[in-house]
Design a protein around this nucleic acid. Structure first.
Lengths: 117, 117
DNA sequence: TAGGTAGTTAAGGAATTACCTAATTACTCT
DNA sequence: AGAGTAATTAGGTAATTCCTTAACTACCTA
């Protein structure tokens, strides 16, 4: 059950990460929660274009959005990013067994966010 | 040291990983060194298509090829994959500092096979 | 040297992606 | 309600990606 869902997310995550703009957005969100407008202001492309990038990131589970009044605040979902990337590294670098536990811990580290899948 | 170079590779690596076929190729190579033909045999797409995927992976530094006689053998470059992904996780999840050392160790783990860069 | 196998390069077409402008929705404030 | 701001949706186009077939290079064997 979990495995298929995980696979789907992996695909979306790597597709999301394939864009430089989207990786930059994540980097900005790594330092602070930002509104869509604040994010758009940091790029040369149009606001709708940024909005689409944000939608891709959200579909991949890498960010979440919350509307507060007039603004939509975006924030990074650290666990998800760390989990997916670590899972993949594990899959392709099976040698690194020792790391496995460490990275699992990493994923949970930020907080009490549970296993949603 | 080579921050720019790293950035360039990051771009190529994530672009390479955005394709399911390419991620599958890496998964196969995680278990064994394979020739181009052996890899192509595992997919439904044409041989030239696989060849192009392999070129993308090689440009990203994720695999290396060696021609032996009639065959071209491909093999995974584990360190590179682990390094790039871990570097990125670090950049976006600055919380996870503890993992850093572990992952560095991981890169070298496979031993024997040489550092080409 | 001729024929066969392994692999890549070349050329072209279909599908996807990224971007733009314009229109729309949702909220705030007077 | 009406004007202004924030953000997304819609519609259309340019660029890119992925795959195909055909042609080519390199190697092996008889």
């Amino acid at each position: 059950m979990k495995k298929l869902l995980k696979y789907l997310f992996m695909q979306r995550v790597f597709e999301a990460l394939s864009s430089t703009v989207r990786r930059k957005i994540l980097a900005y969100l790594a330092h602070a929660e930002l509104t869509a407008g604040e994010i758009a202001a940091r790029f040369d492309i149009s606001k709708p274009a940024v909005s689409q990038h944000l939608a891709v990131l959200e579909n991949a589970g890498l960010v979440t959005s919350e509307k507060r009044g007039q603004y939509v605040h975006y924030r990074l979902v650290r666990e998800h990013l760390a989990n997916v990337l670590n899972d993949y590294v594990q899959e392709v670098c099976p040698v690194s067994r020792p790391l496995k536990r460490e990275s699992a811990a990493l994923g949970d580290a930020p907080a009490a966010e549970g296993e949603k899948e």
